[in-house]
């Protein structure tokens, strides 16, 4: 077996890594999340699907307080996430991969990767670079260490963004539609990296339209519409025997055989 990507220092059997409790979120008059309750266990791979505007992105963005809920509670690793502690708690526990990659364009790839470990985790440059090269190997882009992100293809940028998230060595990685902005032929290279990660003990929450990926890696799949969770289950139950009518229609539209 390969060396593990992560060493999880303490095991908390049974406690939820992420817990949303009666979370409500409004954008102006729009009620985007309606009393969402959700638990993600340590090491679990959760995939959230649903039509656009269903609140699935908002749900993951509430998990690191990029959106702060109007009411309800969010717990990360047993601690409540609040406006006061969000920077510290997010720094310690979560990282995120975005649809638009959001790499820092004024820095080389290597600098993108070592910035947070050096400035936030106070690692030495040697340690941080070692870590960076390790994860560049994981995503297969070691040779791009010294180029600027804008010179890379979308798929490569997203793989770098995943490496950057891995460099945080956080227990949780949130993926907000990581392949939606990619050219079709580069989607698979990103999915391959994510499939590789899914073998590790990282808690992953993935918003995606990639049903093949969901079937392959998810421990649990959630279907959202109108700011509510309408159905959840294992991939097998979920895709073979969907109960909810809207899910049936949604799957019918999205999976064309």
């Amino acid at each position: 077996m390969e060396a593990p990507l992560f060493c999880i220092s303490r095991e908390k059997e049974g406690t939820a890594m992420i817990k949303l409790e009666n979370v409500n979120k409004y954008f102006g008059d729009l009620h985007v999340l309606r009393d969402v309750n959700l638990e993600v266990k340590e090491g679990e791979k959760l995939v959230i699907i649903g039509p656009s505007g269903s609140g699935k992105s908002t749900t993951v963005r509430c998990m690191n307080f990029l959106e702060e809920p109007n009411s309800g509670h969010v717990y990360i690793d047993g601690e409540e996430l609040t406006h006061r502690n969000k920077t510290q708690l997010v720094r310690r526990t979560t990282s995120m991969v975005f649809q638009q990659f959001n790499l820092y364009p004024h820095m080389t790839v290597l600098k993108n990767l070592v910035l947070a470990p050096m400035k936030l985790h106070h690692k030495s440059r040697e340690e941080a670079e070692e870590l960076a090269y390790h994860y560049l190997d994981v995503v297969g882009l070691r040779e791009k260490a010294h180029v600027y992100p804008t010179t890379l293809s979308g798929g490569q940028q997203q793989r770098i963004a995943i490496a950057r998230a891995l460099c945080m060595q956080s227990k949780i990685i949130l993926f907000d539609e990581p392949t939606s902005a990619l050219d079709p032929e580069t989607i698979q290279e990103v999915l391959d990296v994510m499939i590789k990660l899914a073998k590790e003990n990282i808690t992953m929450v993935v918003v995606t339209h990639e049903m093949g990926f969901a079937r392959q890696v998810a421990d649990r799949v959630i279907f959202m519409a109108d700011g509510q969770i309408l159905e959840e289950g294992t991939p097998d139950q979920f895709f073979e025997n969907p109960q909810n009518e809207r899910l049936k229609t949604f799957l019918g539209k999205i999976i064309r055989k």
């Binding site: 990029l66 510290q88 990282s95 975005f98 638009q100 400035k119 936030l120």
Partner: peptide, 19 residues
């Protein structure tokens, strides 16, 4: 997205602005 990426890595206001 740059603000969001910086926040999601755990940079506080000063760190986000400076780096």
């Amino acid at each position: 997205g740059q603000f969001e990426a910086a926040f999601s890595q755990g940079f506080g206001y000063l760190g986000r602005m400076t780096y």
